[in-house]
Design a protein around this nucleic acid. Structure first.
Length: 562
RNA sequence: GCCCUCGUAGCUCAGUUGGAUAGAGCGACCGCCUCCUAAGCGGUAGGCCACAGGUUCGAUUCCUGUCGAGGGCGCCA
């Protein structure tokens, strides 16, 4: 890595100047402006105070030392001092030609790969919607985010398990079953019930012996056939829609399974043994306020029934028991208040605070051509995720959900997402890939074969468009590492848009296969195009979006409408 | 009242452990097709980075406060 070479050289220059400075404070950054060079160092400004000298004077000394032929790192063209004391390094294009060679030497799945995770096991739990109804549009964001994060962590050396927690017991399930029963009997949904449109729709699917049967038992753990049917119906829906979205789970973990296994009782016993649970007012409490929570929380109600918290703790205890070094939970915004008590509970069980992370995904506001899609929460109106995916397609849905950071509320415009035009980022990026395939076809059609890389003169690549493309590719490994570390897959879509943009500029200004292009240049450009293809496929793979070889061509009428 | 996430161009959003003249796309306006898909490319206009202090050589970034938006504060899940 040239960055490391430059950092080493800079440290040597500081040594030579007799200046001691904390090495970690010396950083090399990519300047925002091209004329500031390829890399910029702040070392002189950082060291100025300790050295008691003006930063620019120091910078000049460092620059002079680095320009000495004996000290000059590879590819360095010139070094300048600028601004308040930056040392700017300008590199020769040859360093980017080396980047090209590195990129085409990788298959897409290897590009940006690292060993940051060191093979540790991470469990990513996401979606985990209650099996009391269909997934809605908001779940799509969590589903896509969780899956993309999983892909990022896999790329960076983690062993990933994708997990869905099924809340298949408790009061919500009983309300759900009662709602189905009421709808089947043509009666109004009970006060605490679910009143979405899907209830009546699903009720019509009930087999007659269930639809006509007696109302479900009000409580108890007796098996209620109607509830079982409803559970299966909802889970089938979830699995099906997630499949459409290209999201697949390794584990569907049943809350109910922990009753039979004794995991819930064992967890309570564990908490008591650690002295972090106590009895008061007939209930059992968790001493969560000792672990950063606002107040203590009830684990078992005075009536003897556990709250939702206890099975959740048992569930996370189970995950630790399966050997995961890191647990990541992806939750909707309406659960963020739940984070401190969960973290407190896991700390109370003796786990490292860093081993549990909760990512909160903010809301998704649906729009259609700029107009908000209004829903009545009281009437239980939702936009089903299935409808979103059906309307805009898997690729567009995924890419759009991943366009921005999950900690800001998202505006998702259905019309924009499905539009096949330049204002839709997913098509902009995919179109770049299709253009590459088109160039390859064109070359084949012209009988031009791409020669082995070692026979090609990459020094032919000097056009600013060509270099800009290589600069974007050069950054990819860092972007991947950063996106994984900060749990931000939106940084991948941002990079893809950048790369695609630079490719479209190249495509416009630099023909690859044409009579006007020298054959040697064609060869170099064919390799540049191949490197770009590897980058696009690699990035698209991280977000689970396809890289098509051709796009549907709009006819003239449609184009005129655009 | 307390907590969480935010507040950046007309709109949707980026903004790299604090860096130089704050960016992209869309929208608006002006240009560009004998040649690999014009679903593209180039240019112009558009900003008190919500506001006020503080830390720093340097703050959109870190700290405090104010205002504004959304969400959360149950022996509900």
């Amino acid at each position: 890595m040239i960055r490391d070479q430059l950092t080493d050289a800079l440290a040597a220059a500081l040594d030579a100047a007799g200046i001691e400075v904390d090495r970690s404070r010396i950083t090399l950054e990519r300047p925002a402006r091209r004329e500031h060079g390829d890399w910029s160092a702040n070392a002189a400004m950082v060291a100025a105070k300790a050295a008691g000298r003006p930063p620019r004077e120091l910078a000049a000394e460092l620059a002079a030392w680095l320009e000495e032929p004996a000290n000059r790192p590879a590819h360095v063209e010139r070094i300048e001092v600028a601004g308040p004391g930056f040392v700017n390094v300008h590199l020769a294009p040859s360093w980017l030609h080396d980047v090209l060679t590195e990129v085409v030497g990788c298959i897409p799945a290897e590009l940006g790969a690292s060993d940051d995770g060191a093979g540790r096991a991470v469990n990513i739990e996401f979606v985990s919607a209650n099996p009391t109804g269909p997934l809605h549009a908001g779940h799509g964001r969590g589903a896509t985010y969780g899956d993309a994060l999983a892909r990022l962590l896999e790329r960076t050396g983690w062993q990933v398990t994708r997990e869905f927690y099924v809340n298949d017991r408790g009061t919500q399930m009983r309300h759900y079953a009662a709602s189905l029963a009421a709808a089947a009997a043509g009666q109004p949904v009970p006060e605490d019930g679910y009143r979405g449109e899907y209830i009546t729709r699903w009720a019509t699917e009930l087999p007659s012996e269930l639809a006509d049967g007696p109302p479900p038992a009000a409580d108890g753990d007796d098996v209620d056939p109607l509830l079982e049917w409803g559970l299966t119906r909802a889970l089938d829906d979830h699995r099906d829609v997630l499949d459409l979205l290209g999201v697949h789970f390794d584990v569907w973990f049943s809350e109910r399974s922990m009753v039979g296994s004794g995991a819930i009782d064992a967890t309570l016993a564990d908490l008591r043994q650690r002295g972090v649970a106590y009895d008061s007012d007939g209930a059992v409490w968790l001493r969560s306020s000792d672990f950063g929570d606002d107040k203590d929380r009830v684990l078992v109600r005075s009536g003897g029934e556990p709250t939702y918290l206890l099975p959740d703790i048992a569930y996370h205890r189970d995950k630790y028991g399966r050997g995961f070094a890191l647990l990541v939970d992806v939750w909707g915004a309406d659960h963020h208040g739940y984070v401190p008590r969960m973290a407190a509970a896991l700390a109370a069980l003796g786990h490292e605070p860093d081993s549990f992370e909760a990512v909160i995904t903010q809301l998704v506001n649906l729009q259609r051509d700029g107009e908000p899609v209004r829903l009545s929460k009281r009437a239980g109106e939702i936009v089903e995720l299935r409808d979103v995916v059906d309307e805009v397609g898997t690729d567009a849905a995924r890419f759009t959900f991943l366009l921005q950071s999950v900690n800001t509320a998202q505006t998702f415009d259905l019309e924009l997402a499905k539009r096949k035009s330049m204002d839709n980022p997913v098509y902009y990026v995919q179109y770049a890939h299709a253009r590459i395939a088109s160039i390859v076809r064109k070359a084949e059609g012209a009988g031009i074969e791409r020669l082995p890389l070692e026979q090609v003169d990459l020094a032919q690549l000097t056009h600013e468009r060509e270099l800009a493309l290589l600069r974007a590719l050069e950054q990819f490994p860092e972007v991947v590492a950063d996106a994984a570390r900060t749990r931000g897959p939106h940084k991948i879509t941002a990079w893809l848009r950048e790369l695609a943009g630079r490719f479209h500029g190249f495509y416009h200004d630099c023909y690859v296969v044409a009579d006007s292009v020298d054959p040697e240049l064609t060869q170099a450009r064919l390799w540049l195009v191949e490197a770009t293809r590897v980058g696009l496929v690699s990035g698209l793979d991280l977000v689970g979006v396809s890289a098509p070889d051709a796009m549907d061509v709009l006819d003239d009428d449609q184009r005129a409408v655009d």
